[in-house]
């Protein structure tokens, strides 16, 4: 018996997308298992670790806690969208340069979260950065170098006097 499903239309990484989704499917499962966007990770399935973080209408959310049907009409950005966006290249490079990546499983979620944070808090201090990353668990790095990576971006945005348009340039 086919489970009840619904057709949804949303913007995925800047492109319109229509797909029929079972009502019980999570956004995480839709992205990973149906659409093949495996950069978004499953690590807990209950919104505790942040590995599945995506942007939905400019909010950072755990995709494991969202129903896929609730993406209908929204704009969704995943790590794949961020990686393909030239404006985010410095952020990804900052993670690489700072040594913020070890096993790397939590990293896409952290990059998405950092991207979102930088867009809204371009003047943040270190304590604010730490608070912004609180919902993302990392077992390898001890967080120090992840915080360094984000702090480097904050400093760079500052230096170039880009606070005003930081929203679109993080």
């Amino acid at each position: 018996m086919k489970p009840p499903a619904r057709e949804i239309t949303f913007t995925l990484n800047g492109r319109p997308r229509s797909v029929e989704v079972p009502l019980t499917l999570s956004a995480l499962e839709l992205l990973r298992d149906v659409l093949g966007l495996t950069g978004t990770k499953y690590a807990c399935g209950e919104g505790e670790c942040g590995a599945c973080t995506i942007l939905v209408d400019d909010r950072s959310l755990c995709s494991c806690l969202l129903f896929a049907v609730d993406l209908d009409g929204r704009a969704v950005t995943t790590i794949e969208g961020i990686a393909a966006d030239d404006a985010s290249e410095p952020l990804i490079q900052a993670f690489v340069n700072a040594g913020a990546v070890q096993c790397g499983f939590c990293t896409p979620g952290l990059v998405v979260q950092a991207r979102h944070f930088l867009a809204h808090h371009a003047n943040a201090d270190r304590a604010a950065i730490k608070r912004a990353l609180e919902g993302n668990l990392c077992r390898c790095t001890g967080y120090q170098k992840i915080i360094d990576a984000v702090a480097e971006r904050v400093a760079a945005l500052h230096e170039r006097g880009e606070e005003k348009d930081a929203r679109s340039r993080s």
Binding site: E80, I82, I92, V101, G104, T107
Partner: peptide
């Protein structure tokens, strides 16, 4: 391996 990991690849 950091660039691939940080970009979800």
């Amino acid at each position: 391996d950091a660039p691939d990991k940080a970009s979800g690849r």
